[in-house]
Design a protein around this nucleic acid. Sequence first.
DNA 1: TACCAGGTTAGCG
DNA 2: CGCTAACATGGT
Length: 290
Amino acid sequence: LDDEKTVICIEGIDKQTLDLSKTLDCGQCFRWNKLGTTSWYGVVGDKVYVADNQIIDNKPCIVINATAEEWENKLYKYFDLDTDYSQLKIDNNDKFALKAQQDGQGIRILKQDAWEATVSFIISQRNNIPKIKSTIDKFCKAFGNKIEEPNLSSLKDKEFYTFPDIDTICKLDIADLDGIGLGYRDEYILIAAHAIKNKSIDLDKLANQAISGELAVQTLMELKGVGPKVANCIALFGLHKLDMFPIDVWIQRIIDEYYNGNIDIGSYGKLAGLVQQYMFYEIKYGSACL
DNA sequence: TACCAGGTTAGCG
DNA sequence: CGCTAACATGGT
């Protein structure tokens, strides 16, 4: 990073605790991209961050262009560092899941903005990840606010935008979404925006820990264009319901191949969603194949 | 060029 | 219920 003034080094975080590459590349978020071989850049809220796991003076740490205040009040929570993942271990003899857990050590479930997660996973249906990312980028560029880019030469030619807020999207007509690449999902997003704004779907209420993941999923599925998979993703990644287990085509293939078509999600208890991410990562980058 | 992607809906039987 | 065609768009 060129701008030393705003870079902090968070000591004491190794890759077992928080592996940025695994966490940012296991399909839960769409606004982070690789910079070089180990660094990542992405938008969280109203700022662009560049982050990396590093070893400095023999000590593991996270290097990130954040202020201490941003780390404490925003990013610490975003990376779910309040949760002790060493306490979240699979408690059964599930061979595939245990292997996935081992290979996926360091993956965390990010605490993403619930509205952003809702729109993002509506867009995700029937799209591949590069397309999802580019569509979200266009959506942000069209309706978000421009963000000052980090003082980094390799990002100089890029532009960054905040995720559009609900009020902005609620003012739009369906025709305003032409050219974004949303396809038939355009109306789903407008409907969701209005439902969330008028609190017929109250994301803040659903995020409350007292609300079960099942109830959150059931409620989210009232939205047009939100079926079981997308609802589970919103609940897991946007509402932090860690026991939710989204079943997409990849997880379904795993279930067919390694579980004889039948998986007992309840056997993973309250960490089912984390196990799901381990599995997704295992299929994408681990030794397991289909 | 075709095929297909972190699915969901509506409309059948 | 269970099954399935249709769905917009662009990446590979």
